[in-house]
C-alpha cells in the first residue's frame, strides 16, 4: 500500500467532513417562541376501515399465537392512529420537548411501540422480553441500518449518534416476517404523532404559511398548506384514503 497517497486521501476526506457536515439542522431559539400560534386537528380515515388483517405466523406459532397487522389502525371516531404530522420548513424555534431516550420492546412477537416519534440523536434501549430469540433489523436511507440477533430476555443499547438525522427507519425481524415497526426521526419539534382517535396538536409555531406534511406507513405521504397566525389556534382535519 502506498502510504503517502493513502494519508493524503484521509487528509482530504477529513477536510471534506469539516466543510460539509452540519447542514440544515434545526436550531432551538433561546427563550422559545413568544407570539406563536398553535395547530390541532385529526387525521381521519375516508371510507369504511378494513378489518385488521390476520398475519401468517409461519414460525414459533406456539409462542407467538395469532397476529394481526397494525399497519392501519382506525379508532371508533374514524381517526387514524400512528400518523406523523409535521409543520415543515421551520429551521429554528421552540425547544424540543421530546423524550431524551427511548425503550423499544419485542413482546409476544410484536414490536412495541409500533411507531416511535423521536428527535435526531436520541439513544435508547431495545429489549427482547420474549422467551424466544428475535433479530432487530432496521432499514433506512442512510440513517441507521443495523441487524442484530437478540437472544430471549436480553437487551441492547442504541447509541444516540446512530439516529443521526431526520428520516424514516423501518424495523423488521427476519425470523418472524410479520413483525414490523417504524422509527420516525423528526426534522423539528413541530412534529406530532396521532393518538388512537387520530388527534394531534402542535404549539408555539412561529406565524407563517407552511406545508403540513402527513406520513403514514400504509397511506403514504401527503401535504396541505396551512397558515398560522400569531397567538391564535388553527384547526386542520385531514382525510386520507386507502
Amino acid at each position: 500500500m502506498k502510504l503517502p497517497y493513502r494519508s493524503m486521501l484521509l487528509f482530504c476526506s477529513a477536510l471534506l467532513v469539516i466543510t460539509q457536515v452540519q447542514a440544515a439542522k434545526y436550531k432551538e431559539v433561546e427563550g422559545g417562541v413568544s407570539n406563536g400560534g398553535s395547530l390541532s386537528g385529526s387525521i381521519m380515515f375516508d371510507g369504511t376501515p378494513p378489518p385488521a388483517k390476520e398475519l401468517n405466523v409461519d414460525t414459533d406459532a406456539e409462542h407467538c399465537g395469532k397476529q394481526y397487522s397494525e399497519n392501519l389502525i382506525v379508532g371508533k371516531s374514524g381517526g387514524i392512529k400512528n400518523a406523523v404530522v409535521s409543520v415543515s420548513g421551520i429551521a429554528s424555534g421552540k425547544a424540543w420537548q421530546f423524550p431524551a431516550n427511548f425503550t423499544f420492546d419485542q413482546h409476544g412477537c410484536v414490536f412495541k411501540p409500533h411507531v416511535m416519534l423521536l428527535k435526531p440523536k436520541t439513544g435508547g434501549e431495545v429489549l427482547n422480553s420474549d422467551p424466544i430469540g428475535h433479530n432487530v433489523h432496521t432499514i433506512s436511507k442512510g440513517i441507521f441500518n443495523v441487524n442484530k440477533k437478540m437472544k430471549a430476555n436480553t437487551e441492547m443499547q442504541v447509541k444516540k449518534t446512530k439516529l443521526r438525522k431526520p428520516g424514516v427507519i423501518r424495523v423488521k425481524c427476519d425470523l418472524h416476517s410479520w413483525m414490523s415497526a417504524w422509527w420516525y426521526i423528526a426534522e423539528s419539534p413541530y412534529t406530532a404523532l396521532t393518538d388512537e382517535n387520530g388527534n394531534f396538536s402542535i404549539g408555539d409555531i412561529p406565524p407563517g404559511t407552511y406545508q403540513l406534511k402527513i406520513w403514514h406507513e400504509k397511506l403514504g405521504e401527503s401535504e396541505q398548506t396551512i397558515t398560522i397566525e400569531a397567538g391564535s389556534e388553527a384547526k386542520k382535519n385531514v382525510s386520507l384514503k386507502l
Binding site: 441487524n147 442484530k148 440477533k149 437478540m150
Partner: peptide
Amino acid sequence: TGLDSTPMPSFAEE
C-alpha cells in the same frame, strides 16, 4: 458484523 442490509444479523452480543 453480520451482513447489513440482508437478514444475516450480527451475533456480536450473543
